[in-house]
Design a protein around this nucleic acid. Structure first.
Length: 414
RNA sequence: GGAGAGAUGGCAGAGCGGUUGAAUGCGGCAGCCUCGAAAGCUGUUGUCCGGGCUUCCCGGACCGGGGGUUCGAAUCCCCCUCUCUCCGCCA
């Protein structure tokens, strides 16, 4: 959630920043109005409540002293009657504010480049040079077919479209990659966790998937539970509604989980292959960081994700997302895009974001800074998307006969 | 799924319907003591919101969640959720 006081006190700066994400000034203005209305309603309510408390206390004293209650009772009844509508007003104002506030995306950092979409993202650097092929490299689905690695038809039969079955070597490679990533993340200082693959609505609201993006989630019928779209949800919410000690920061966590997304709105995109599935494996990093040092943690996470690709010998580039391409909760995001020779293009394989205090405010994750409680910063990043790594290995390590080499770094895992 | 018990501050654990935002213990913090530490002693120590003369003061709310009774609810009543124990089922 955005800082309402910041909007109240620095309206122009706030609306300028949100303009980068395409948020209309009117919406902020409405938000500001609802915030003011709530404060007004609360002030009136609290004054009446204070009076009620005063009278009630007096009531007790009168009774003890055996004095006549009659007049006081009339007063207290009148005041009580006045409280009810004030309470209703305050409650309405509260939910009106909340409803809107939860749908307003995070402020982009000032450093975030302007732009509307993907096309305006800024390349930071390329790592490793794509190899020269003496033949026409195939796309991964063609390679998968040749090697019998992916059973698309049966995935569809078992579930529906955008599900697939990995077979034999591909299944083993998938498992090897998960272990490889977890080991490297652990070596980097991330605690390995194994978490529930279902989360309740409170947690999803904490990280920002709800209430706005319910359409992207698979929900369990008759339960307040959803299949997680990313391990960011359980990992970040590990400290939901908790107050950490300063010396615990930064908390670095990593977990492997499958991720489930409805991919509503991406009909027709990436329909071939396994680039975009309803279920995919991902190893995620999450950091709960001190606000003063979270930038360093961000850099570390970007570098670490990049190092993983380098160790696997996968050429990639780092891209700074422009304002229009930033996700709902992100203040700043760097994508890592891996080279896919079959598609002759770079495709996202990791996304590292800082949400600053946006998720922390929603999820109430704080730390003791001296006597005061301060919001932490939360960061997340894939390290890495497993399915897409498998795709990248297939395309980059293919031979002319369609066979696929194993990256050196993975050999101990197979 | 069936039966029972319970949910209170960081933890443990009290709490006749009215100075109880909550005893006590532990933990944490500060001070004393000490060369230093331990032990001991003294004090202090919840969260959120609003306001103010903004290292502090004032007001409001919060004892799993929601509703009710009452001038007044942690305390009484109802509903929900969750946890624990036993049984059943199960990897």
């Amino acid at each position: 959630m955005v800082d309402l006081r910041y909007i109240q006190d620095h309206f122009d700066a706030a609306s300028d920043r949100l303009l980068k994400k395409g948020v209309d000034r009117e919406i902020l203005s409405e938000l500001q109005g609802r915030f003011a209305k709530l404060k007004e309603a609360n002030a009136a309510l609290e004054a009446a409540q204070a009076e009620q408390n005063r009278l009630s206390k007096l009531f007790g004293v009168y009774k003890r002293e055996g004095r006549d209650i009659g007049e006081l009772k009339a007063k207290v009844d009148a005041n009580k009657a006045a409280i009810a509508p004030l309470q209703e007003t305050a409650r309405t104002a509260e939910s009106a504010l909340r409803e809107l506030a939860l749908t307003v995306p995070n402020f982009p950092d000032l450093s975030v480049p302007d732009g509307l979409d993907e096309a305006d993202n800024v390349e930071i650097r390329k790592v490793l040079t794509p190899r020269e092929f003496a033949f026409e490299p195939l796309e991964h689905w063609a390679l998968a077919e040749r090697n019998g690695w992916i059973d698309f038809e049966r995935g569809v039969k078992l579930a529906k479209s955008r599900f697939a079955v990995l077979r034999g070597e591909a299944a083993r490679l998938e498992r090897a990659l998960i272990n490889f990533f977890l080991d490297r993340n652990r070596r980097q200082g991330f605690e390995e966790l194994y978490v529930p693959f279902l989360s309740n609505s409170t947690m999803l609201q904490g990280t920002g998937q709800l209430p706005k993006f319910a359409d992207d989630l698979f929900k369990i019928e008759d339960e307040d539970l959803y299949l997680i779209p990313t391990a960011e949800v359980p990992l970040t919410n590990m400290y939901h509604d908790e107050i950490l000690r300063e010396d615990q920061l930064p908390v670095l966590m990593t977990a492997y989980t499958p991720c489930f997304r409805k991919e509503a709105g991406s009909a027709g995109r990436d329909t071939r292959g396994v680039i975009r599935q309803h279920q995919f494996d991902k190893v995620e990093m999450v950091a709960i960081a001190h606000p003063d040092t979270s930038d360093a943690v961000f850099e570390m996470m970007v570098q670490h994700a990049s190092d993983l690709l380098t160790e696997l010998g996968l050429p990639h580039r780092l891209v700074e997302l422009c304002g229009g391409d930033l996700g709902f909760s992100a203040a700043r995001t760097i994508d890592l895009e891996v080279w896919l020779p079959g598609q002759n293009t770079y495709r996202e394989i990791s996304s590292v974001s800082t949400t600053r205090d946006f998720q922390a405010r929603r999820a109430m994750i704080r730390f003791k800074d001296g006597k005061k409680n301060r919001l932490v910063h939360t960061l997340n990043g894939s390290a890495l998307a497993v399915g897409r790594t498998l795709v990248a290995i297939m395309e980059n390590y293919q031979n002319e006969d369609g066979s696929i080499e194993t990256p050196e770094a993975l050999k101990p895992y197979l």
